[in-house]
Nucleic acid binder design. Structure first.
Lengths: 212, 212
DNA sequence: TAGATTGTTAATCGATTAACAATC
DNA sequence: TAGATTGTTAATCGATTAACAATC
């Protein structure tokens, strides 16, 4: 079987979602074509960088003078991320952050679907939060396996994060999005992405210091 | 006045919050010393990289064989980020995500303090969400100026994000943490950090594809 | 045609990793 | 002393930017 997917540089992959958001906005405004220089200006990036990024992901390429067909370009990026087949995820920990994420509209646009929430809180179990059912922790494995869920989101307090992580791994979860401020120990083949919100904000506030 | 702060590479700065979280955990476990190889193993990073990172931020340096004094190292990182003087921030948009962030415990550990929330919802105005008062949008400027708030968090629906951004800039906000999926237009001197949660999750789910 | 834009090759830049001497 | 660890210099790697020919 051919490896028909070009290897796209890591940094480029990180920028693709931003391009996608920007391009979708332009499409809504009624544009049908878009050029690299316009995208670069809009997102405050280097022109050549954008050109290379778009070239890397675009199947049909752009045309001198007119640029890219906006619709095709959007489809190419969506295809790269596999948005054609929606992926399911579970959220464990339906506190403030967890329930905010359950209801997060933005996921839809990126081919993601939260199928269920899990919590230890008896009052929550059996109820629905923003239309998603909440189950007890001990049903994680069963539900993940039945519904082929490979993505887990951890929004429990720090001290329970590792425990939940272990349960997820046993349940067949392959990728974990971790909001707890804990470094999770996982087998080699499992991918963990730590979302340290406080750290992000700290970095932002740090950047003020320099200018001020 | 001396530029007594070494310029630390951008990528190193990004890792510092992770070191901090890890080191604090080790301190709680009762360790008094820590070496670069231990940190590297714990966070799955290259040993030399950690050594360079720690050397960049540590004032007193480490010692062969014993490593760094854990307490000092933590203080050095905290000092670098300026955690000695807590910084205030406001949140505009007290929906699910906004109210989750208001209550987010993690901010404390990073020298950040949310002083107030703002919303258009009449039912919310005047109430408290997790102990923070909610004000109407038209009081953003007054409150930011009175309390010297330079950090703004945007958690409103996409279509209002630019409008809120403009109000913040006029109110003297210097750094904006944007959760809306919109590219904000700001003057040159204002820093915007986009937190595209859906995109992060998309990247994570993408990484599964490769291994699976 | 003239000019804007693409795609690509080459040059630069910064970050990571390797190698190693110095130290306790 | 032997061995682990630091700090630093050099080599490698990857990403960004510059330069430019090809194209419509």
């Amino acid at each position: 079987m051919a490896d028909d997917e070009k290897t796209i540089p890591k940094q480029t992959v990180k920028r693709l979602p931003d391009y996608l958001t920007f391009l979708r906005g332009k499409a809504e405004e009624g544009f049908t074509n878009i050029s690299a220089p316009v995208v670069a200006k809009g997102l405050n990036l280097n022109e050549v960088q954008v050109r290379k990024d778009l070239a890397a992901v675009s199947e049909s390429g752009g045309r001198p003078r007119t640029g890219y067909l906006l619709r095709d370009l959007i489809l190419d990026i969506e295809k790269y991320f596999g948005y054609d087949n929606v992926k399911d995820a579970i959220i464990v920990g339906v506190g403030h952050l967890g329930s905010a994420l359950i209801s997060f509209e933005g996921f839809k646009n990126h081919g993601l679907n939260v199928v269920a929430g899990f919590d230890t809180n008896e009052k929550l179990i059996g109820t629905e939060v923003h239309g998603k059912k909440i189950f007890p922790i001990d049903r994680i494995s069963e539900i993940c396996k039945n519904f082929n869920v490979y993505i887990g989101i951890i929004t429990v307090p720090d001290e329970y994060a590792q425990e939940i992580c272990d349960i997820m791994v046993k349940a067949g979860v392959l990728a974990i999005w971790n909001f707890a401020q804990v470094h999770l120990k996982v087998p080699e083949n499992i991918i963990v992405q730590n979302e340290n919100l406080a750290a992000s904000l700290a970095l932002l506030s740090k950047s003020i210091k320099r200018h001020h």
